[in-house]
Simulated scan of single mutants.
Amino acid sequence: MIDHTPHSALLPVRGRAAWATGALVLAAAAWTARAGWQLRLASVGQPASGPPDQGDGRHRVLTGLEDAYHLVAAFADALTVLCALTFLAWLLRVRDNARALSGSPPRYGWPWVYAGWILPIADLWIPRGIVADAYRATAPGRRLPACVNWWWGLWLVGLISGVGLMYADSTDDVIARAYGNVTPLLVADAAVVGAAVAAVLVVRALTAMQEEA
């Protein structure tokens, strides 16, 4: 049985879970569209005029397909930001509820809920640790769902691949990559989409445990 902390000590989590789930689904769809446009760019091939960035600060006029990719990429980036905000709002709520259920302070203080995603090295394990600790505090003795490890593994692939979540280059440079070798881009996009889908399962699993509590 889960620890029977009085219900008044817990904050509602279903609403935040619904927002996070919806944002994750939209982000996954947007990144799928981004991958589709990259495939279209690769199939059409680079124009005879060369890549969009001509070097020395010169840029040629974009083709219709390239211009559309700029819009799709910007939309995917905006949905990624929305996804991050809603996921963090949900994570803060379940973390607070886990603390109320266990009666013990969490291993990571609240600043880590934010800083853990952006600090080098720390971002490789702290966010997963926050989720795992919240689940274990909510349901002591229960095995951590496999979706947590799938989510984090796929997230790391997208994060450290250099062509996924953390594009170091401009959108025009990514277009040039799609013309030259689209496979690494598609692998990174697939990892991001997979991570979003797994994150939906994580949100559902932890939310269900707290509602049961």
Score class of each variant (00 low, 15 high):
189 D>V: 01
200 V>F: 02
113 V>Q: 13
160 I>N: 07
19 W>Y: 11
149 N>V: 04
53 D>Y: 07
39 L>A: 06
208 A>P: 00
68 A>H: 05
70 H>L: 10
163 V>A: 12
11 L>M: 11
197 V>G: 05
48 A>C: 00
135 Y>R: 10
175 I>G: 00
19 W>K: 12
124 L>Q: 13
15 G>R: 09
10 L>V: 13
199 A>H: 08
88 L>V: 15
130 I>T: 00
117 W>M: 05
174 V>W: 00
193 V>R: 06
182 V>W: 02
163 V>T: 15
131 V>S: 05
190 A>M: 12
99 R>V: 14
104 S>H: 11
200 V>P: 03
133 D>Y: 01
33 A>D: 12
137 A>P: 03
166 M>T: 11
204 R>P: 06
1 M>D: 12
145 P>T: 04
158 G>R: 05
94 V>A: 07
87 F>L: 14
95 R>K: 10
7 H>G: 01
159 L>I: 00
150 W>S: 11
179 Y>A: 05
145 P>K: 01
71 L>P: 00
61 V>M: 11
137 A>S: 14
204 R>Q: 15
129 G>A: 15
55 G>Q: 02
11 L>P: 00
160 I>K: 08
112 W>Y: 12
141 G>V: 06
103 G>V: 08
84 A>R: 08
69 Y>I: 03
27 A>E: 10
153 G>R: 06
173 D>F: 03
184 P>S: 05
30 A>T: 09
183 T>A: 10
159 L>Y: 13
8 S>V: 14
47 P>L: 08
193 V>H: 02
106 P>G: 10
31 W>V: 10
79 L>Q: 08
30 A>R: 10
80 T>R: 09
30 A>D: 09
71 L>R: 13
213 A>W: 01
154 L>A: 13
186 L>E: 05
76 A>M: 07
48 A>R: 11
119 L>W: 04
18 A>R: 15
84 A>D: 09
196 A>I: 00
49 S>E: 15
133 D>M: 04
78 A>F: 11
82 L>E: 02
88 L>M: 15
14 R>A: 15
128 R>Q: 11
146 A>Y: 01
171 T>V: 15
80 T>F: 11
20 A>Y: 01
141 G>F: 03
204 R>L: 15
153 G>N: 09
163 V>H: 13
104 S>Q: 12
140 P>F: 01
90 W>S: 06
42 A>P: 12
59 H>G: 01
42 A>D: 14
21 T>S: 05
178 A>V: 06
194 G>K: 03
86 T>Y: 04
112 W>P: 02
190 A>P: 04
108 Y>R: 12
171 T>I: 15
64 G>W: 00
201 L>I: 00
46 Q>V: 13
71 L>D: 10
49 S>I: 07
75 F>C: 07
177 R>Y: 02
145 P>G: 05
155 W>S: 05
75 F>A: 14
